[in-house]
Design a protein around this nucleic acid. Structure first.
Length: 854
RNA sequence: GGGCGCUUAGCUCAGUUGGUUAGAGCAGCUGAUUUACACUCAGCAGGUCGGGGGUUCGAGUCCCUCAGCGCCCA
């Protein structure tokens, strides 16, 4: 080390109060975390930072996970890498829309014209005020800008070493342009298509949702046993269904091909009750003989199994449920709606049209009972029902036009990509694999919403006004981003919108994951030289609940676009549980927000807690752990003050001055610590690095510093004193750097007492700094054992540790005694020992005779 | 139904390829106390490593099995 020891500035009373404000400002001024854009790919460590959803407040889980990423960023930066560490905000999408609706008391009505004078409402209206799409989007932008400031403030206070000049948001024009470009390129490569298909649909949000956004919830339901007359009049077939309201859309009955009860029925027809529609009885192995009566009705569509049956058995479509969740018109008697009794079917259906699912169910069940088709009592069950993860009502299946990314036909390649990722911890790869193996529909990327990236396509209208979806008009790639709902299609004039012979814009926006899956391209400015310097990214840090969404979709996009992985390493954080180890949730009301903890315990302390959570391990909020982190920070201040105080007036000590056996042994142990900590970080095991460093640090404070204390007070010309000075200096400089990723504020403070530039730009400690291969001799531990025995004797006799030892008898093997003897000077100083006697014997023991009271 | 993880001291967790008497921190208990630190220091106590079986000279660690908790996928 070539420290300028004359420029030390150690405060009289060091304190951790105020360190955060001081160093945040200095780091900004000195551009400590600034990314060097001239760096080449091999010099760079790039991080694909998760852009948090901007829809309210940050969660303690964010603090946990982002700290883990920051630990790696800081380690890599000190190791000499140019760290590309951006921060993004995922502000487009439904969560933002919901927040805006509630926050301002508005709702979007795309049919309304833009009101340029519409201001930001001071407080939400009682009734939600309908506003135009453009006004709505403006409110979304307004609110996300405010939220992002709050988020940014929190990250900064946590000490996340982001380069804030690399900030991005997924709704920005830049992100929209990247997203639209990537879409157009996928379209050109035939990786995306639009089609009219049965789609999982949330009737409250009035949008399609994708498989990745589904969750099963156990819901109570009733089995209704319903009798169908056989088509030839020979008898009845009894089915069981939980959704009798869909009876009018029944297109077949289905049973398992091996089910002996129904062999005779396969190939025959039955008549639906009430509607008298003749439908076939078919066989399919997905029919579960154990469920209900083993024979079920297939409706278009009651659930996803209906869709599979419908597709694989080529059944007709008789859709009943509209986008608003209400029953659509059904033209009984027309070609698509055959029935043996047109009048009765029409008459009854007239009571159902326009009603909700629950209303229709009640009406149908009453009619079935009255007609005698409902057999026995309802049978209550609970069964899993598909919900949109953010929704409150079960999903319906609605046929609509959607854009899909072809994932199914690339399943094998995508599984292979998952194997190529270095997962931390390794077992998280199973989450990815089981998700990809379970895919059963292509990735639906269109949402019938407003605040998102529009599809950069328009459609021609023919002379009759019919839409030609098969030949979309594509945006000019040099003109992105575009908004087809306000920009006219290329070659058309705005006046031709909605006119026969004119055009319409695609009304939908993209799924938020369709844009955030391009985070490397967005943050890295795909198409510029920067992108080549940072891609593929080195690290994707994230939480495990978004493996199937963000991680998977990023892999898909990168595989298609670049034929590569988007990142090399995936660092997956666990859950943060509440103090009682329960999962936090809004409904339970045990969600912990980070800001109060940050203010109470300090950033270093909160980071210390987060760093103790190993990758992939669920970790409970533990304020006791935060207090220990705070204690560590204070100890770092005090021991640094003390050591630097001992080094006052000392200059030019180096590893060559380390001559004492005790000191040399300490450096050998320090070398091992450097090696262990470095290896742990290289394996993304920051928690182990912390544990080892912390253990060494406390031992250094309580044992080495005590042992070397009096020697360090000696004459600077004495080699033993110089050895102590050099050891203290080297060890302190090493420990401050090893601790810097974990407790960046206090580490920076104590480092700057004797260095001119940031510890966060200092070189990560290397074993070579400690001279040529220090060899562990065991002096430190052996002397420590004797000292411990002396302390025990004093403690047992309830004396002060300052009580002197009249005679110390150390018994043990010759080689052990020799080792202890080499550290005797420090031992007698630290232990207050007047005389030491060595006895050679097999067993190690220590006997201390204290000086009697005067 | 398939898969993954966890189960070690009162609590939170380490324990690497099997190798002395299973470790740490916190909490508890007993003490100490003037200059780096009361946001301190020392010491003590506390575990048949979830149950059962097996492999081995030797198992917290490897294998089988059972149980409980949590999660992922269907």
């Amino acid at each position: 080390m070539t420290d300028d020891l004359s420029s030390r500035a150690v405060p009289d009373k060091p304190t951790i109060e105020g360190l955060e404000e001081t160093w945040l400002a200095r780091w900004d001024d000195e551009r400590v975390y600034h990314f060097d854009r001239s760096a080449t790919r091999d010099e760079v460590y790039s991080i694909d930072t998760p852009p948090p959803t901007v829809s309210g407040s940050l969660h303690i889980g964010h603090v946990f996970s982002y700290t883990h990423a920051d630990l790696m960023a800081r380690y890599q930066r000190m190791s000499g890498k140019k760290v590309f560490y951006p921060m993004g905000w995922d502000d487009n999408g439904l969560p933002t829309e919901r927040r805006v609706e509630n926050y301002f008391g508005v709702r979007c009505d795309p049919s309304l014209p833009y009101d340029p004078d519409f201001g930001v409402p001071a407080k939400p209206a009682e009734q939600k005020v309908p506003i135009s799409r453009k006004n709505f989007v403006e409110l979304c932008q307004h609110l996300t800008a405010t939220d992002e400031e709050v988020f940014k403030n929190l990250w900064r206070h946590l000490g996340v070493s982001v380069d804030w000049t690399l900030e991005y948001s997924t709704i920005s024009p830049h992100s929209q342009a990247i997203s639209q470009r990537a879409f157009l390129e996928m379209l050109a490569r035939d990786e995306v298509y639009s089609s009219v298909a049965p789609t999982l649909w949330d009737v409250d949000f009035r949008t399609a949702v994708s498989q990745a956004e589904l969750e099963d919830r156990e819901r109570p339901a009733n089995y209704h046993r319903v009798a169908f007359a056989q088509g030839d009049g020979s008898g009845r077939v009894e089915i069981e269904t939980t959704r009798p309201e869909l009876l009018a859309s029944c297109v077949a009955l289905v049973a398992h091909p091996d089910d002996e009860r129904y062999q005779a029925l396969f190939g025959t027809t039955v008549l639906t009750p009430l509607f008298q529609v003749e439908v076939p009885v078919v066989a399919h192995e997905l029919a579960d003989p154990e469920k209900g009566s083993g024979i079920a009705m297939i409706c278009t569509f009651g659930d996803t199994t209906d869709v599979i049956w419908w597709r694989e058995l080529s059944l007709p479509t008789r859709a009943l449920i509209g986008r608003d969740g209400r029953f659509l018109p059904a033209d009984f008697g027309a070609e698509d709606w055959p029935t043996r009794d047109v009048a009765a079917a029409r008459d009854f259906y007239a009571q159902l049209e326009g009603r909700t699912v629950n209303q229709v169910r009640a009406t149908v069940v009453d009619a079935l009972r009255e007609s005698g088709a409902l057999i026995g009592e309802l049978r209550a069950i609970t069964h899993p029902v598909k919900f949109y993860e953010k929704g409150e009502r079960p999903l319906e299946i609605v046929t609509s036009r959607q854009w899909f990314v072809k994932t199914l036909e690339h399943r094998g390649e995508l599984l292979a990509r998952g194997e190529q990722i270095k997962w931390h911890p390794d077992f998280m790869k199973h989450r990815y694999r089981s998700w990809v193996e379970g895919l059963n529909v292509d990735w639906n990327i269109s949402r019938q919403r407003f605040f998102g990236v529009p599809f950069p396509v328009w459609y021609r209208l023919d002379e009759s006004g019919a839409v030609d979806f098969e030949h979309p008009i594509l945006a000019d790639a040099t003109q992105l981003p575009v908004d087809p709902s306000s920009d006219p299609a290329p070659g058309f004039d705005e006046s031709q919108r909605h006119q026969p012979g004119g055009f319409i814009g695609d009304p939908d926006v993209m799924d938020t994951w369709a844009t955030s899956s391009l985070s490397p391209q967005i943050a890295g400015y795909w198409g510029t030289d920067l992108f080549e310097r940072i891609f593929p990214m080195d690290l994707r840090p994230q939480a495990h609940e978004i493996i199937r969404t963000w991680l998977f979709s990023t892999v898909v996009r990168s595989h298609f676009q670049h034929d590569s992985l988007p990142f090399t390493n995936a660092l997956i954080s666990g859950w943060v549980l509440d103090p009682d180890r329960k999962k936090m949730s809004k409904s339970v009301g045990n969600v912990v927000t980070p800001m109060p903890l940050l203010e109470q315990h300090g950033a270093d302390a909160l980071r210390y807690w987060a760093a103790s959570g190993r990758p992939g391990t669920d970790t409970a909020i533990d304020e006791a752990q935060m207090k220990i982190g705070r204690r560590l920070a204070i100890k770092i201040l005090n021991v640094s003050k003390f050591v630097l105080g001992r080094l006052e007036g000392v200059s030019d000590v180096s590893v060559a001055d380390v001559s004492e056996p005790l000191d040399r042994d300490l450096l050998a142990k320090l070398a091992q610590l450097i090696s262990d900590s470095t290896t742990a970080f290289e394996h993304y095991d920051y928690a182990r690095a912390l544990e080892r460093t912390e253990g060494f640090f406390w031992s250094f404070c309580d044992n080495y510093v005590e042992l070397a204390k009096s020697r360090a007070y000696g004459d600077g010309r004495d080699p033993a004193t110089r050895s102590a000075h050099a050891t203290l200096s080297l060890t302190l400089a090493t420990l401050q750097r090893l601790l810097a990723p974990f407790v960046p504020f206090v580490s920076e403070e104590v480092w700057r007492w004797w260095h001119d530039s940031s510890v966060h730009l200092a070189a990560w400690p290397r074993v070579l700094e400690l001279g040529d291969a220090p060899v562990a001799t065991g002096v430190y531990d052996a002397v420590g054992d004797v000292l411990e025995a002396v302390r025990r004797e004093k403690s047992t006799q309830k004396f002060s540790q300052r009580k002197e030892v009249a005679e110390l008898v150390v018994t043990g093997p010759a080689e052990v005694l020799e080792v202890i003897q080499s550290g005797q000077r420090d031992l007698v100083d630290a232990g207050g020992v007047r005389s030491v006697i060595y006895h050679e014997a097999g067993e190690f023991s220590v006997r201390a005779t204290l000086v009697p009271d005067a």
